[in-house]
Design a protein around this nucleic acid. Structure first.
Lengths: 143, 143
DNA sequence: ATACTTGCAAAAGATTTGCCGCATG
DNA sequence: CATGCGGCAAATCTTTTGCAAGTAT
């Protein structure tokens, strides 16, 4: 049983054959495609279709939204006009997007995490969520 | 002549009646609606229509993209599925979005700015652009 | 003069939804 | 068995584009 399927059980999310397949594909994402993997709905649909080609893209949309609202996966909008997803991890991380290759690098920085909270507090708010994206180019390349 | 119209001149962006109106509306944004103003295309179209109701929304889309590519205004995707715009300022600032009211608070934090560069460098990249958004709730309210 | 711009309506791309038969708990 | 789910196609929403006519430099 995939990690995400387990989380569904924990959270009382109803499981169907289709959802199990989508859960497995999401769970396998990083293991199969590396830490830079943040598939969009179309890519997810391609992957689940290899397991069961009866699953419609509408179901992928519905399921991905369901998982997101249950706090099981995370949605990102990386300036592309479509959403990309990744399994939610315990430790929060941010993203650096290589503007030449589209490659994504994940990183964790404690100082940034502290600062975010401090700033929200200073402005009279309680931080609920946040997003830091660095758009960058590789060093030591003919740029 | 509006600030943005001046910038168009500087950058050699061709000026038409429609573009002048849109430039003026963008220039007036913060002055008229406060620092929280980040209008989307539909809102911009409403505002320019008050000046000249012949201007089509397609022109607003085209102009807003033109201004963005010329580095005159800035586009944001605040998790809403549509883009919102603001005039580009000399000093970079980030945004805090009140998840209850949708209100936007702009802030500047030198420490964050430094950290962003340091992190990109550490990962072997040169920072080109970045985005930090804090989604938060007001303190001292019955939350 | 000529290359760029606009308005309109149609197209495109991502995402959502109504309906109805079907599966899950 | 009852409620919720999935497939399909149509609908929706934002944004882009082809075309013919108009405009800026």
């Amino acid at each position: 049983m995939s990690k995400i399927e387990e989380k569904c059980k924990q959270k009382g999310v109803r499981l169907t054959e289709q959802r199990k397949v989508i859960a497995k594909v999401m769970s396998d994402s990083k293991e199969t495609y590396g830490s830079k993997d943040h598939p969009d709905v179309d890519e997810l649909h391609k992957r689940v279709s290899k397991v069961d080609d009866k699953i419609s893209i509408a179901t992928v949309y519905r399921t991905v939204k369901l998982f997101e609202e249950a706090g099981i996966i995370e949605r990102h909008d990386f300036k592309e006009g479509k959403s990309r997803y990744e399994p939610l991890t315990e430790e929060h991380h941010d993203h650096l997007i290589d503007i030449n290759s589209g490659e994504i690098v994940e990183f964790v920085d404690k100082d940034i995490e502290e600062l975010k909270n401090k700033i929200a507090q200073r402005l009279g708010y309680k931080l609920v969520d946040h997003k830091l994206e660095l758009y960058a180019q590789k060093l030591n390349k003919k740029n």
